[in-house]
Amino acid sequence: MEWFATLLESPRFYSLLRSVILLAVGLPLLQLLATTGKRVAKKHTNEQAAMLVGKAIFYTGVVMLVVMVMQNMGFKLTAILGAAGIAGIAVTFASQTSLSNIISGVFLIWERPFAIGDVIDVGGTIGLVLSIDLLSVKMRTLDNRYIRVPNEMIIKSQVITITRFPIRRMDIDVGVAYKEDVGRVMKLLGEIADANPFALDEPRPLILFKNFGNSSLEFMLGVWFSKTDFLHLKNSIMRDIKERFDAEGIEIAFPHLSLYSGSDTAPFPVRVVKTD
């Protein structure tokens, strides 16, 4: 029991006890504060911003708690902070990329160019956003590959949020033979769009006579559709165009090459060979 009496008389014991109590009460309290802050932030902002608020509360609290514990244990903070400053400079130099990603992540969360569940195109890579974290954005490509894109890259490059708006337009190029009636082709394209249940009747389909092409008269059919119907529309309207044009006798053009035998455009000599 003597050792116990000695322990009780030691001032170090009490500072240690206070530190343990500080940590035992402080950490769960911080966790609670962070969760509450996250929940409140989620009501007013999005999930990523809420996550950021939660983490900010927790880690700020942890730093304060550690400082309090160290003070309580009798450490000289001035010396520690001085050392931490030097270490901080070294760490900063070493982790420039990570810091850049973190700051980019904060901007991403603040700017909200896309959200979890959106389909985005980053430098030609198209995928579904799985998470937006402080360092990177995780995506699942359409052929089911997992891609991690650093936030810095997203901030620096052009990002297309394909599913941002409820509707999109699909532009389909159609080439028909030069002998076809332009007005009739345009009318048929309009009827094809009207008859397709996945094509929106409003906004009206865009039908353009684009160009006199090398081998065809070039048209564009721009059909609006609900963002969830991309595949349904793509498959059905291409089939509709082919079937309708076939039924109406409209020739869908393919590349042609006309050969002339000379400046007088004399005909090619043709030899007819009798076969059995």
């Binding site: 708006f165 409820p166 509707i167 009207d194 397709n196 249940p197 996945f198 094509a199 929106l200 009747d201 409003e202 906004p203 609006w224 559709f225 609900s226 119907d229």
Partner: peptide
């Protein structure tokens, strides 16, 4: 009857419906 899709309002904020 399978009705065609339609859209009402601005392309950025409108609502999807049946035509």
């Amino acid at each position: 009857v399978i009705l065609s899709n339609s859209f009402f309002g601005e392309p950025t904020t409108g609502q999807l419906g049946y035509a």
